[in-house]
Amino acid sequence: KTVHVNGVQYDFDNPEQAERFAKEMAKKAGLQIQFHGDQIKIE
């Protein structure tokens, strides 16, 4: 899974790890999470 945070890309082999990371980042920055198939976007 790939997580995009403000244009920066983070790759994870483990989907659960990717989602946990995305939730942490979104919570910290007060941003929205969008799921697009294999990609998670935080903007």
Score class of each variant (00 low, 15 high):
1 K>T: 13
1 K>V: 14
1 K>A: 10
1 K>P: 05
2 T>C: 14
2 T>S: 09
2 T>H: 10
3 V>W: 04
3 V>P: 01
3 V>R: 02
3 V>Q: 02
4 H>R: 09
4 H>E: 06
4 H>P: 01
4 H>G: 02
4 H>V: 14
4 H>T: 12
5 V>E: 00
5 V>P: 01
5 V>Y: 14
5 V>H: 06
5 V>C: 15
5 V>L: 10
5 V>S: 01
6 N>K: 05
6 N>Y: 09
6 N>P: 01
7 G>Y: 02
7 G>T: 02
7 G>E: 01
7 G>K: 02
7 G>S: 04
7 G>H: 02
8 V>T: 05
8 V>M: 08
8 V>F: 07
8 V>A: 04
8 V>S: 03
8 V>Y: 07
8 V>N: 03
8 V>P: 00
8 V>I: 10
8 V>G: 01
8 V>H: 05
9 Q>R: 14
9 Q>S: 09
9 Q>W: 08
10 Y>K: 00
11 D>F: 15
11 D>I: 14
11 D>L: 13
11 D>P: 03
11 D>H: 14
11 D>A: 12
12 F>E: 01
12 F>K: 01
13 D>R: 02
13 D>S: 08
13 D>T: 05
13 D>I: 07
13 D>V: 04
14 N>H: 04
14 N>E: 06
14 N>L: 07
14 N>K: 04
14 N>R: 04
15 P>Y: 13
15 P>Q: 11
15 P>R: 11
15 P>A: 13
16 E>A: 09
16 E>V: 07
16 E>G: 05
17 Q>R: 02
17 Q>L: 09
18 A>L: 04
18 A>T: 01
18 A>P: 00
18 A>Y: 04
18 A>V: 02
18 A>N: 00
19 E>C: 15
19 E>I: 15
19 E>K: 11
20 R>E: 11
20 R>N: 09
20 R>K: 11
21 F>P: 00
21 F>A: 01
21 F>G: 00
21 F>N: 00
21 F>Y: 04
21 F>S: 00
21 F>W: 10
21 F>E: 01
21 F>I: 01
21 F>H: 00
22 A>G: 00
22 A>C: 14
22 A>V: 08
22 A>N: 01
23 K>Q: 12
23 K>M: 12
23 K>W: 13
23 K>D: 04
24 E>F: 13
24 E>K: 09
25 M>Q: 07
25 M>Y: 13
25 M>S: 02
26 A>G: 03
26 A>L: 08
26 A>P: 00
26 A>Y: 06
26 A>R: 05
26 A>V: 03
26 A>E: 04
26 A>T: 02
27 K>R: 11
27 K>T: 12
27 K>I: 12
27 K>G: 10
28 K>L: 13
28 K>R: 11
28 K>G: 04
29 A>V: 09
29 A>T: 14
29 A>M: 15
29 A>L: 15
29 A>D: 08
30 G>F: 07
30 G>E: 06
30 G>H: 08
30 G>L: 05
30 G>Q: 07
30 G>S: 06
31 L>I: 07
31 L>M: 11
31 L>G: 07
31 L>Y: 10
31 L>A: 11
31 L>N: 08
32 Q>P: 05
32 Q>I: 13
32 Q>A: 10
33 I>C: 14
33 I>F: 05
33 I>A: 04
33 I>H: 03
34 Q>I: 14
34 Q>L: 11
34 Q>P: 03
34 Q>D: 07
35 F>D: 05
35 F>S: 05
35 F>C: 13
35 F>Q: 06
35 F>E: 05
36 H>A: 11
36 H>T: 10
36 H>D: 12
36 H>K: 10
36 H>I: 13
36 H>G: 08
37 G>V: 05
37 G>D: 08
37 G>F: 07
37 G>W: 07
37 G>K: 08
38 D>E: 09
38 D>Q: 09
38 D>W: 10
38 D>H: 08
38 D>Y: 07
38 D>F: 13
38 D>M: 09
38 D>V: 08
38 D>K: 03
39 Q>H: 11
39 Q>C: 15
39 Q>I: 14
39 Q>S: 12
39 Q>N: 09
40 I>Y: 06
40 I>H: 04
40 I>V: 06
40 I>F: 06
41 K>H: 14
41 K>T: 13
41 K>W: 15
41 K>G: 08
41 K>N: 09
42 I>P: 07
42 I>M: 08
42 I>K: 04
42 I>R: 02
42 I>F: 07
42 I>S: 06
43 E>G: 10
43 E>A: 08
43 E>S: 09
43 E>W: 14
43 E>Q: 09
43 E>H: 08
